[in-house]
Computed example of a mutant assay.
Amino acid sequence: MTAPGERVREPITPEEREVVGRQLGRPPRAVRAVAHRCPCGQPDVVQTSPRLEDGTPFPTLYYLTCPRASAAASRLESAGRMREWQADLGTDPGLAAAYRAAHEAYLAERDALGELPTRNTAGGMPDRVKCLHALAAHALAAGPGVNPVGDRAVAEMGEWWAQGPCALPGEERP
């Protein structure tokens, strides 16, 4: 078993699927595996299939499920971090190159599960900073150093897990 707060690629269990459903407030779609566990021990990122159950393309490979982590990412978006980091992409060639490499790594991993007709990834990669939720999910799942913008988001999201598990049995979404 992987320690909490580490990357994982374990097939999702029925119990974890239930936790993710409580986190999201709805049944999860196209979930393949737990991609990262929160330090509280619950899934906070899941890996999804490139297509939904009905065959609809679903280009988001990693999905942030923890409502506290999601709220933290939303606060960063509201604070204008997307605009700031988008501007950084235009002035920092090293950051732009690393972000493009993150996009390519994301595509390669997703394509290994099934190719889609689109080369879109998540969060606006490779040229835009569009969704910090998706970028943070990718950074948590891939580990530090893969997605530089996602790494920034995770670093600024704070300790979303500090209050303990976000989805306890019998509870609705917090």
Rank of each mutant, 00 (worst) to 15 (best):
A35N: 08
D88Q: 15
W85Q: 00
G25Q: 02
G55V: 09
A155V: 12
E159G: 09
V46K: 06
R83N: 08
A153Q: 09
E156A: 15
V45K: 02
R22W: 13
V45W: 08
H133G: 04
E15G: 14
V45R: 05
A30S: 11
V149D: 01
P148Y: 14
R51Y: 13
I12E: 09
E104W: 10
L52R: 10
A72I: 03
L24S: 01
E104V: 13
V46D: 10
G150R: 03
M1T: 15
P93Y: 07
A141S: 00
K130C: 08
R17A: 14
Y62S: 05
G5H: 08
L24I: 08
L24E: 09
G114P: 07
R26W: 13
L24K: 01
G123D: 07
R9K: 07
G5D: 04
G5R: 02
P11R: 04
A69H: 12
G143V: 14
N147F: 05
H103R: 06
A33Y: 02
A101N: 07
E159P: 15
A79T: 03
P148A: 13
P117W: 10
L132P: 01
R128E: 15
W161M: 00
G21Y: 02
S74K: 13
R17T: 15
M82Q: 13
V45C: 04
Y62T: 04
A162Q: 10
R128F: 11
A73S: 13
V45L: 05
G124N: 08
R81V: 03
P169M: 09
G90I: 13
G123Q: 07
G124L: 12
C131E: 04
R119P: 01
